[in-house]
Amino acid sequence: MIVSMTLELKDIPGQLVLALSPISELHGNIMSVVHQHEEKTPRGTIPVQITFEIDQRVLDELIERLEKSGVRVARVGEERLRSSVSLVLIGHIIHSDIGDTIDRIDSTGFAEVVDLSLSMPAIDRTSSAYLVISATGEKELKKSLEILRDVADKKDLLMIEPIRLNSEGA
């Protein structure tokens, strides 16, 4: 699982290593560390945000080790949905059962529709929707897009996806 933690470190040298070593000892894979040295907490400690991948079974052990070494664990959260994609749908979105369309993604367990805006200009005109799908990873995101493509095809909706090769920008 991917975990994001906020730790509080004492403002003395060597504290960051103290916080990071238990994670590597338990074979965690550190993905990002944000060290905000200038933003002290009211307690005089320094908050650090760490995101890492780790076996769920050793998470309690990790927290215990951190606290024992004097690092305060202020927040633990699962970073479940890490990849997102924006899409536009055009067609009879409502009448082709929008609830079902969203369910098809949400029911996968690895992807969710996290944002949806709709525009319905008139009863006899086609609707348009902008939606964002988030998934646990790139592979899962790809799979959810395949599902939606299939749904859109069956419901006669035009699905506009982002450009592929160049999607990361200039």
Partner: peptide, 17 residues
Amino acid sequence: KITPEALELASKNNYVV
């Protein structure tokens, strides 16, 4: 099949079609 509404929704989210 592209509608002006779809373009507007895309634009609000910093995309063009």
